[in-house]
């Protein structure tokens, strides 16, 4: 039995202590926002926060979570579902394409901005280099992080048809 909190809720699971957090979260807790990409901590799709620190859940055994707090993409928004600044920026800059890596990207960016509210390009490169986006949305991720940090204005969730009339 491993006990921890998941997105603020207490949880306990019967699992092989060596089982990576990723599979416990996805299969036992049914939270599928956290993705499997490589299984070797190389792509970042599985990034969750463990006591606030971004970790690769595919390579972190559930035993590591004993007594700790796990936060997944499902726990990033506020209690009423209000999106975080990072999530809002991801929408305003229309970042995702396929979207598969974006949970991990958002978890990494969230941790970056908490520790470094005004990151430089080099800071962003360093913090985000562990997260692969195969669709190639890096330019937008970079801009969205700056928008979330208030360093650049939001491009706006684009125009709707109303303005074009």
């Amino acid at each position: 039995m491993v006990k921890f909190t998941i997105n603020g809720q207490p949880a306990s699971v019967e699992a092989d202590p060596a089982m990576p957090i990723l599979w416990v979260v996805r299969e036992q807790l049914g939270l599928t926002g956290t993705k499997f990409g490589c299984g070797m901590a190389l792509c970042g799709a599985c990034t969750v926060h463990l006591d606030g620190q971004p970790v690769r859940s595919c390579s972190t055994p559930i035993a590591e979570a004993e007594g700790k707090a796990i936060t997944t993409i499902e726990g990033v928004a506020g209690p009423e579902g209000e999106l975080s600044k990072v999530q809002q920026a991801w929408i305003s800059e229309q970042v995702p394409q396929c979207g598969y890596c974006q949970s991990g990207q958002i978890m990494a960016a969230t941790a970056l901005l908490r520790d470094n509210p005004s990151p430089s390009d080099a800071d962003i490169d360093a913090a985000m280099a562990g997260n692969i986006c195969r669709c190639g949305t890096y330019v937008r991720i970079r801009r969205a992080i700056k928008v979330a940090a208030g360093l650049e204005p939001a491009k706006g969730a684009a125009q709707t048809g109303e303005q074009a009339a």
Binding site: L31, T32, G33, T34, K35, F36, T72, I73, E74, V76, A77, G81, L83, Q87, W90, I91, Q94, V95, P96, G99, Y100, Q102, S103, I106, A157, A158, Q159, T160, G161, Q163, A164, A165
Partner: peptide, 24 residues
Amino acid sequence: RLMGTDAPRTDIPAKVNGTAQFGI
């Protein structure tokens, strides 16, 4: 009126909060 404009993608909100459902 809409064609040729940057109408925001309908699938993006679900891709930033973990609710988008992929095959896996």
